[in-house]
């Protein structure tokens, strides 16, 4: 990227930011000269957590993604799954943000296929990989099964996802395996991430596995000696009872 392009990207990031104050991390600055530790209120960078307005998927894409996630992390007699945790909302917000755009990834060409040990080599950032792969999945399902993915029975959906995972199903122009690996990784992120990101609604996944969340002091429990330590979870935004009437 040329310096001019970089400058434009920085300007874009600033203008596109929801923060009213410029995040302090973006510009060169001088510290020291005996002035002590700098401090000013509200200068920390806020995380990109997304809001309900941050949408990337079309309604049909969103339905398909929700259906895939519901098979990866199913709702069953053992407990809640991706549907109850609202993983699709997490994914929608992520794809609409810097992650979906691949903004922090190295996306310069040339693009080569590479070995498995060389990792992600798609020329598409995550959101575009989803878009292209979802279109391919739709066309595969209509051709092979006569219906879109969302309308297929769970067993057939599982067979198709297994086919992507095991590379017996391939897409045109985009790697089915790269898509499967990415959506599985992202779905697990959405299931277990802090609820500020839109998934793990009401900390449902944390409660399911017994993770107490973002409590920060366990000194009273270090000597648990192998006994269960059951604590109600807390998220970065507190607990449901704290911020809801």
């Amino acid at each position: 990227m040329s310096l001019q392009t970089r400058r434009r990207v920085l300007q874009f990031m600033l203008l596109g930011s929801t923060a009213f104050a410029a995040p302090r991390g973006l510009f060169a600055a001088e510290y020291g000269r005996g002035k002590g530790m700098p401090w000013s209120p509200l200068k920390g960078e806020t995380p990109y957590y997304g809001t309900n307005d941050d949408r990337f998927f079309s309604p049909a894409e969103r339905e398909t993604v929700a259906a895939i996630c519901a098979r990866l992390i199913p709702s069953d007699s053992d407990g809640p799954g991706a549907s109850e945790a609202d993983v699709v909302t997490f994914l929608d917000r992520q794809m609409a943000g810097f992650y979906g755009r691949g903004q922090h990834w190295y996306m310069q060409g040339p693009f080569g296929e590479g070995t498995a040990t060389q990792g992600y080599q798609s020329e598409h950032p995550p959101a575009m990989l989803y878009r292209l792969a979802l279109a391919e999945l739709d066309s595969y399902c209509r051709t092979e099964n006569g219906y879109p993915f969302v309308d297929l029975p769970a067993e057939t959906q599982d067979e198709i996802l297994t086919g992507l995972d095991e590379e017996t199903i391939e897409f045109k122009g985009v790697s089915a395996k790269a898509f499967f690996d990415l959506i599985l990784k992202n779905a697990v992120e959405g299931f277990f991430a802090d609820p500020i990101y839109g998934g793990n609604r009401d900390m449902i996944a944390w409660r399911y596995i017994g993770f107490p969340g973002t409590r920060y002091d366990y000194r009273d429990f270090v000597g648990h000696g192998g006994a269960a330590v059951r604590l109600e979870p807390v998220s970065l935004m507190g607990r449901p009872g704290w911020n809801r009437s």
Partner: peptide
């Protein structure tokens, strides 16, 4: 770092 930042003969340029 907090000690260093008190010293007039130290400066730091970030994002540089």
């Amino acid at each position: 770092i907090p000690v260093l930042m008190q010293r007039p003969n130290f400066s730091l340029l970030t994002n540089s």
